Amino acid sequence: MKKPNPLLDALQEILPTIAANAAQAEKERMVPPENIAMLKGIGMHRAFQPQAYGGLEISLPEFADCVAALAGACAGTAWAFSLLCTHSHQMAMFSKQLQEDVWGHNRDATASSSIAPFGKAQNVEGGIILNGELGWSSGCDHAEWAIVGFRRPMAEGEPPAYCFGVVPRSDYEIRDDWFVAGMKASGTKTLILKDVFIPEHRIEAAKDMMEGRSAGYGLYPDSKIFYAPYRPYFASGFAAISLGIAERMLVVYAEKTRNRVRAYTGAHVGAATPALMRLAESTHQVGATRAFLEKTWQEHAEYGERHQYPDSRTLAFWRTNQAYAVKMCIQAVDRLFEAAGGTSWFDHNEMQRLFRDSHMTGAHAYTDYDVCAQILGRELMGLDPDPSMV
């Protein structure tokens, strides 16, 4: 039996309003401020924030259940806001000075990100100068900070180091270029950085954050969530969102099909064998996906409770389980949508939005199953990781 989840209970109260705002969110191509205010009102942005700054430090299973439920109401909102939450987990592994910069005067502060190393860094005294057009920053309109990726030049003969820097909103511009077919409401825009200075205390190497060597590692000895690599928490929302979309699709398909009558023949579709079989198979597939993900999320929680760092095989499974789960969710959604009829394609029909957003959950670098299958296959065969596989 699952333990009580007060955050999920509070979230359920505001989901009808968030669902009602979904059309507006798509039209505006960003999460409505009302949604952000309601989600902050229940404290969801504090999910992975250190308790030292008023955070909740809830477990990954509790958080993922909230994200899945939120995705059923508005996937774009879930995508953007879940990242604003998980970035707090990442920042808790930076230096104490960085955490003071972010939360010392504003405990409600959040960060968006653009972590692909597109920025061009130049070493200077006390830090780096960063320039670049950094895309894919979901929810950036609502964040006070941004986590940005870059390759930092190292000593002669050494390869550049993949690093993250944290910059305040005053240091970058936002380019509104989010014109897409799926996940429209996420507001995933481009950050423009011009000669931005990032001091050393706001910089961490990605490798250190995956191997327990970052400046903030061990700062919170009583925590159950910060003795962990950053990446599993950062990526946790993607599969949860895909699951929430698929679970919502089961409901919408059943409601639409139950009373659907074929225009040319008058046949009652809801009682037809093909419709029943499609709904049954997708229901089994989505249920299996939830069970699979819940087992993975629970492993995350147990490792954190024991302060046990995962080995390479465990990390490979955590990394790739979610991509396989997304693949199954998309299949379940497609099975229903392809038989939902022409009216399901109208803009006002929720099913077409669920279909589009579902496919977008499989388009992220961390949910690309072609990549993940290679990562896991190499691990299972005892081969060294391929550095070209993120």
Rank of each mutant, 00 (worst) to 15 (best):
K40H: 12
F317T: 05
L219I: 01
D368I: 04
S137G: 13
L376N: 00
F337L: 15
D357V: 10
I330E: 08
M351N: 11
A263D: 05
S59V: 01
Q322W: 02
G218L: 04
T320N: 11
F292L: 13
Q322A: 10
V102Y: 00
E13Q: 14
L83R: 15
G304R: 08
F118D: 07
P4K: 09
F346C: 05
V261Y: 05
L279W: 00
G139N: 05
G187M: 04
L279D: 00
L191G: 03
E57K: 13
Y220L: 01
P160I: 09
A121M: 08
D176W: 06
A109I: 04
G212F: 05
A73K: 09
H359K: 14
A271G: 02
S312P: 00
T289M: 03
K327R: 15
F234P: 00
T77H: 07
K96R: 14
H284L: 12
G127L: 05
S282D: 11
A52I: 11
A291Q: 14
I375Q: 02
E338M: 08
E133T: 08
P16Y: 12
A73Q: 14
I128G: 04
L354I: 12
I129R: 06
T343F: 13
A181V: 09
A340D: 14
S223Q: 14
A235S: 07
Y217D: 00
D65L: 11
Q331H: 06
A288K: 14
K3G: 03
A240D: 04
Q331R: 06
E299R: 13
S223H: 09
A275M: 14
Q90H: 07
V31Y: 11
F355G: 00
F292K: 14
L191V: 13
G104E: 07
G342D: 05
L11D: 03
V390K: 12
H89D: 03
Q298H: 12
V286Y: 12
A316K: 03
G149F: 10
A363V: 05
S236A: 07
C85P: 15
T265F: 09
N259Q: 04
Y162I: 12
I245Y: 00
G342K: 10
F238P: 01
Q285C: 14
L39H: 12
V333A: 02
L250D: 05
K2W: 13
A373C: 03
F355H: 09
P232G: 05
C163N: 06
F63S: 08
M91K: 11
L84Q: 09
K207H: 05
A340P: 13
D334H: 10
S388G: 01
I225D: 01
F234E: 08
F118E: 03
Q352I: 15
A37V: 12
A288E: 15
D384T: 12
S137W: 13
E338D: 10
L56E: 01
Q308C: 04
R262N: 09
F118I: 10
F48D: 06
M38D: 07
I241Q: 03
E158D: 06
V371S: 04
Q285P: 06
R46I: 04
G270R: 02
C140K: 09
M351K: 11
C329E: 05
F238R: 15
A267F: 08
G135W: 01
E125T: 08
M277V: 14
Y324P: 02
Q90Y: 04
L8R: 09
G244L: 01
S112V: 01
E255W: 07
G41E: 10
K207P: 00
Q331N: 08
D195Y: 07
